[in-house]
Amino acid sequence: MIEIKNLHKSYKMGSNSLHVLKGIDFSVEEGELVAIMGSSGSGKSTLLNILGMLDELDEGSYDLDGVPIKNLNETKAANYRNKFLGFVFQSFNLINYKNAMENVALPLYYQKMVRKERQEKALKYLDQVGLKEWATHLPSELSGGQKQRVAIARAMVGEPKVLLADEPTGALDSKTSYEVMDLIQKINDKGNTILIVTHESDIADMCKRIVHLKDGVILEDKKVEQVRASEYV
């Protein structure tokens, strides 16, 4: 599904440049649930952003489901993101003046789906994250866990090839974190490919594979026995 070879990324900071990713080789098969771990500043988010086409790589290659991702202009990148990828962020990033359903329906709007269909589909995905009754509530009326579930519904509604989550539980307490992980595991059970950046090992243990980053290189990449989040909920 994801095929990365010899990935390099530097950030220019005035006259000097910061070499963040120093030759990453990395591939992900369909249906995997991968945790990316590492200390702060190790380049986790940078890697995820490149995978998410939010940032460009300097060197190396990136193929997503057989499609080489390179030299994308802004419009093409936006269309690819919309079609291929779902995003979940640490701080949810819901649009505060749109209710839960409208937030979930937004990616479908950019897919030019008609309104009625959008709303039906958004409701269906809200139902899957257990928030159908909250459809007309604004984000400010939802708890952190609920917000993240809405964000997950929004990420999944466009039926992406890969779900990318940057510290999805970073802003949540452990109980809520496990609920969110339970949901992510269930989505993964259906065959969806998911990458999660985290620095909490209990969250990483709930994935099927853990990749350790350190100073811009992969230190360790191992398959693990998945801990089911439902045991803790």
Binding site: L54, N79, R81, N82, Q111
Partner: peptide, 16 residues
Amino acid sequence: TKEIGVRRALGATPKI
């Protein structure tokens, strides 16, 4: 800024 960034991440093109 953040809202527009989110929209762009979700697939809004610069034109939109």
